[in-house]
Every structure is written in C-alpha cells, then in structure tokens.
C-alpha cells in the first residue's frame, strides 16, 4: 500500500531492466538478448522535469515506455505515487492509465488524419468517463493554455503546422490532468523557431500546473534549458545524473563530456576543447565486458575493461559511473 503520499516521488524505478530477445541467428543455438535498458534506477518528484539524454538506441524511448508500464519490465521494481505497479497487467493498470500520458516526436503521426482535432481531444475525456459538458469546458480551458484559438478545433490535422499540432498533442495529454507525462523527443522534429515556442510552452505549463515530466531528447542544449535534473544514458545505462546546473557546470563522465563537446555551437568565438570520439556506438547485444563505454573512451584503462563501474554519488545528488573519477 502507499507509503506516506506526500513524500512519495511521482515515479520511482529500482534496477529497471528491459531485455529484448533478438532473432535466432544462423548456426547459433540460443538467441541473444538486446539489453535496451539495463539496471536503471531513478525517481521523479512532483513538479519536476527530469531529462533523459543520449544518442539513438541508448534506450531512452524504451525507458519511457517501461516507466508507463506500456511494456513490462524484464526485471526491477516500479512505483507510481507510492504504489507498486511492477508487472501490472493492462487491466490492473486501468485505474492508473488516465493519470499517465505520453507526447511523441512526430506531431503528424500523433493525430488521426481523418478526425477533426475537437474529436481527438474529446475522445480522451469521454473514454475516461468525463461528462460531455465537463469535456467541452476542459478542452476550452486547454486551448487557452496552449495559446490556440478555439476555431482550430474544427480543423483536420492536415490543415495545421507541426508546431500547432504539437501544441494540440500537449493539450490532449493534459485533458485528464495527469500526474505524470513522458514526452519522447517532443521538439526533435521541429524547426528551431518552433522548437523555442514549444519549449516556452512546456516551461509555462510546468510553472502553472506543476506538471511532472520525463523529458526525452538527444539534444544536450534542449535538456539543459528546461530540465531540473538530467540523466545521461549510454547503451541502456545511466552514466551520469544530477541536478541540471551542477551537472552541466561540472560534467565528469567522459561520454557526457564528449557528447557536449560534439554539439556544434552557434557561436564562432566559443573556445572549446573538442573531444572527438572514434568509432561507432556498439550494439546493445554484444556489450563489451567491463565499462560499456570502454570501446570508445579516451580514458580507458585495464580496470575499465575488467569491471563495470557503478554509479557513485560525488555529492549533492551528482552521480557518475566511471572508474576514473
């Protein structure tokens, strides 16, 4: 049962794992596993935006889906507002569903092209038992919050721009006033001027509604701008995490440092030490023994090849998983 509700984080994960079986290969007896999420622990407090950042394939989206129990974890524990929801089947998840929502990267794919916007928003409320009047009032309120005119409800998705649709996707996620939102790369498909509009909207709504959000992105600058805390993932694991300011003012993990140094900065006068990582991201199927970053790490030593580093607290909640800290 719930512990003291006031103190429970909105979402808490302990040693979460998500493994996928891979296709059986020729001449191989057993199929191997792909470790998409491999021992991730995190918790997000009410009103907090937690950022997950890393390159493609590092397990960000899978983590988001596992946290919402949209796909069952292979191992680990999951708590939502203090309730243990580990392994709950869709039926048992039903009471929790309206309290968790998701926003996706591609706003054009998030809406049924044959349906008017009003219908798409309306359905969310009705399915979860809102009265027609309440749904109508709520939608009106939300259109105001995302700064779109009510007339837009009568349009179909094809008539709207990516930025407008992403605002509407946010409005739809808010219809039921959820306690937790996973936003999976919500600004990655947008032009920079539109991206700025959506980031401003998220910051505004957070201040107003005290939303709790997992914000997934592959862009360090975006995550740094809007998140309270950030976790950097590499091949299924968090390699560095901490409060945003503390983390970015003192990045310690060699991967996190390389990731930041690889961002082309829109400032020709910025002097920076470029750390160029050699080679490609290895697959999450055949992980190297020892540290999973060892194959690309400029600071790799023998110890790194032998044992996998644990996340260690360097103070003030800034955790790093590297032997050379």
């Amino acid at each position: 049962m719930a512990e003291n509700l006031r103190e429970s984080p909105v979402i808490r994960a302990e040693h979460l794992k998500k493994y996928f079986p891979t296709d059986k290969e020729f001449l191989r007896k057993s199929s191997r596993v792909l470790k998409a999420v491999d021992d991730v622990s995190l918790s997000i407090e009410k009103g907090e935006i937690m950022g997950i950042v890393g390159e493609s394939g590092c397990g960000k989206s899978t983590l988001g889906r596992v946290l919402l129990n949209l796909t069952p974890a292979t191992d680990g524990k999951l708590f939502f507002q203090g309730d243990d929801i580990t392994g709950l089947n869709p039926r048992a998840m039903k009471p929790y569903r309206p309290r968790m929502q998701m926003i996706f990267q591609n706003p054009f794919a998030s809406f049924n092209p044959k349906q008017r916007i009003a219908r798409a928003l309306w359905e969310v409320g009705r399915v979860h038992g809102m009265s027609a009047d309440a749904a109508r009032a709520r939608i009106g309120e939300l259109m105001d919050m995302v700064h779109l005119p009510l007339e837009m409800l009568e349009r179909s998705p094809a008539e709207l721009s990516g930025g407008q649709l992403q605002r509407l996707a946010i409005a739809r996620a808010l219809v039921l006033n959820p306690d937790f939102i996973v936003a999976d790369e919500p600004v990655s498909a947008l032009d920079v001027s539109v991206q700025a509009q959506i980031l401003n909207l998220i910051m505004e709504l957070r201040a107003r509604l005290h939303m709790t959000m997992l914000f997934i992105s592959h862009e360090m600058t975006v995550v740094e701008h809007i998140c309270d805390r950030v976790a950097v993932m590499y091949l299924g694991r968090i390699v560095e995490t901490g409060p945003t300011e503390a983390l970015f003012s003192n990045l310690m993990h060699p991967y996190a440092q390389a990731l930041v140094s690889a961002i082309p900065r829109a400032d020709p006068d910025e002097v920076k030490a470029r750390i160029v990582l050699e080679g490609d991201i290895p697959s999450a199927i055949d992980l190297p023994a020892g540290c999973r970053f060892s194959s690309r790490c400029p600071r790799c030593t023998e110890e790194c090849l032998r044992s996998e580093p644990e996340l260690v607290d360097t103070g003030h909640g800034h955790l790093v998983a590297c032997h050379h800290i």
Binding site: S193, V194, A196, Q197, T221, H225, E245, A266
Partner: peptide, 23 residues
C-alpha cells in the same frame, strides 16, 4: 536574428526563449 535568438544557450536555464511568431 530571430532564428539565432531562438537557439537555447547554455547558462540560461529556464529563461523564456525568443520565438518567431507564425509560420
């Protein structure tokens, strides 16, 4: 100017970003 100003800059966390209205 509008485009360059809408890029998030390091060290300005939480500040409203410059935007270009419309499309």
């Amino acid at each position: 100017r509008g485009l360059i100003d809408s890029i998030p800059r390091p060290g300005a966390r939480g500040e409203a970003l410059h935007t270009i209205p419309g499309a």
